[in-house]
Structures are given as C-alpha cells and as structure tokens.
Design a protein around this nucleic acid. Sequence first.
DNA 1: TATTGTTATACTCTATAACTATA
DNA 2: TATAGTTATAGAGTATAACAATA
Lengths: 155, 155
Amino acid sequence: MAKLRGYESALPIALLRAREATMRRFKGHVDATGLTLPQWRVIRALADAGPLDARSLAERCVILPPSLTRIFRALEDKALIETIEAHDARRHTVQLTAAGQALYDRMSGRSEAIYRELEQAFGTENMAELLRLLTLLRETAEAMPTGDVDIIITK
Amino acid sequence: MAKLRGYESALPIALLRAREATMRRFKGHVDATGLTLPQWRVIRALADAGPLDARSLAERCVILPPSLTRIFRALEDKALIETIEAHDARRHTVQLTAAGQALYDRMSGRSEAIYRELEQAFGTENMAELLRLLTLLRETAEAMPTGDVDIIITK
DNA sequence: TATTGTTATACTCTATAACTATA
DNA sequence: TATAGTTATAGAGTATAACAATA
C-alpha cells in the first residue's frame, strides 16, 4: 500500500494548520468582544452582506443549523442582531442592530491592522494568490460529486 | 471606519471554507473507521513520523493537551496506539500498534484516490502552489510576535 | 410533498486553571 | 524552578434524527 503524501503536506491538515497559525493572531482580539469565533463570523457576514437567512449564514460561516439556532439566541440576547420578517415565513432572517454594527466598526480597524501586518510579512502577491487558490479550491470541491453517490445508487 | 475586506476573501474564513469543502470529501471515509477527525489526524501523524510525544502531536494535529489525553485513551482502548517509555519520564510518547498501522494502510489507498481526484479537478500546479503557500503562511505567522506582547508590556 | 428551522440528545472538542510528577 | 502532562470543569460546537411550520 502506497504511503500517503507526507503528513505536513496533506491538504486538509495544511489548511487546518495554516488557519490555526493565522487565527492565533486574531483570537485575542475576538475574545475581547466576549464573542466566540463562530458568533463573530456571523456578525461579520451580516456586516458584509446585510440581512441573511439561516441557510445562507450556515453555509457562509460553516456552522450547522442547530448551532446557528443557539447563536441567534445568544446574539439576540446581547442585542447585536435582530430578526426581521421575510416574505417566506419559514425563513429566519436576521440583521445587525445598531449596537451590532457599532461593535463591528470598533473591531474592523484593529482586524485590518493585524491583517496588513501579516500580509506585509507574507507578501502581497503571495496573499492575493493564496486567496485566489483557496476560493478556486472551494469552488472545485463543491462542484464535484459528493463521493457518497455510489452508496445512494446501490440502494 | 474602513470596511474590512469582503467576507468571502477574509483569510481565516477562506481557509475555513476551503477546508470544509475539502474535508467533506474525506469525511465519510474517516467516519467509516469509527474515529473522529482529530483521532484520525493522530493516527496519520504517527504513521508519517513514527513515535511522537504529546507535545509534538498537539502541535502537528492542532489538538489541545487535554483533548489529546482523552484521544490517547480512546485510541489505546481500541488498541491502535501504545505508549512507549521515553528517556524523559515526563514525556508521554506513543506509537502505532500493528492494528493501528493496518488501519492506516487500509485507509491510505482510498484517501489517495480521493486526493488524486480532487487534484485533477483543481489542477496539479494549483495544488502544488497552494500547498507551498499554506506552509509559507503558517511559517510566517508562527514567526511573527504574538501580538499579545503589547498587553504584557503595558502591565 | 418538499423545504426551512428548531428541538432533542449525546458526544467531542475547546479552553483555562490547578495539580502531579519529573528534570 | 521549570517543564510535560493530566485532571477538573464549564461551555460551545458537532452531528443526527425527529419534529413543527410553511410553501
């Protein structure tokens, strides 16, 4: 049996470790808000895109629906988001409150500074290329058949 | 206050989403072993590098020490790893058992096939470049001062 | 009937501090 | 004294299935 590529260069692990090393730089900054990282992703996604429903947030923030339900509750308790009524009453759509937007605004300057520092050390071109490849990889993987298909077919 | 780069292109989020999309392809495969993803990372790291102590595994597998203690217990209960005595009795060093190696061998062929399929769709050059950049990013981030320094200094 | 979320439930991981053992 | 792990503990996320409400 052939040995797998070296552990260090296995793709999912390289992604995990790169993320861990990067996040470490932002972590204390997010901790200071009293939010967890998934909660912060929700705030940020809403700041970027405006009101979103649960499905969109679950996908963009990589959070499962049951977790998202709890996160909605936590963020509404903190008055950082609020539910708005949608045309389709099945959809749970939320948006930032003024307080949520203010929190985001306070954070964004510092986040940007951390990012610029990292970008400078890593190289502007490297960063641009990495972001391009990460997006392309995601789109490629999402476009591929799931691999569970054969199980479904054999039923 | 300047708006952050778009949510989609934020580095930690791009890393997370790329990993999620990639892992989805391997997930069912790992599930079939009855191991969790962190447990599987430990098996794989040991298969790649031979006996390792807790500190090395925690770092390579991105697992906190308390989690690792439990994972050692779970994998020893399954007889996939075993503890070996080290020169420094403080160190908890483990290695794969024959059963652990056999499990890894059974998995590696299928893992490699999934990887090749993804690599083909993504492009061999893209994959090589992405892995290079991920490693460089991690090394760059790890080499930078932690950013907590100013807090320490101000005390 | 299909879709959108929520609830229920069990398990694992995260995270921090305190503690034990060894060097 | 410093280091390596483990234990303790609280909390959050993961994951699946079952359910409720709406389309």
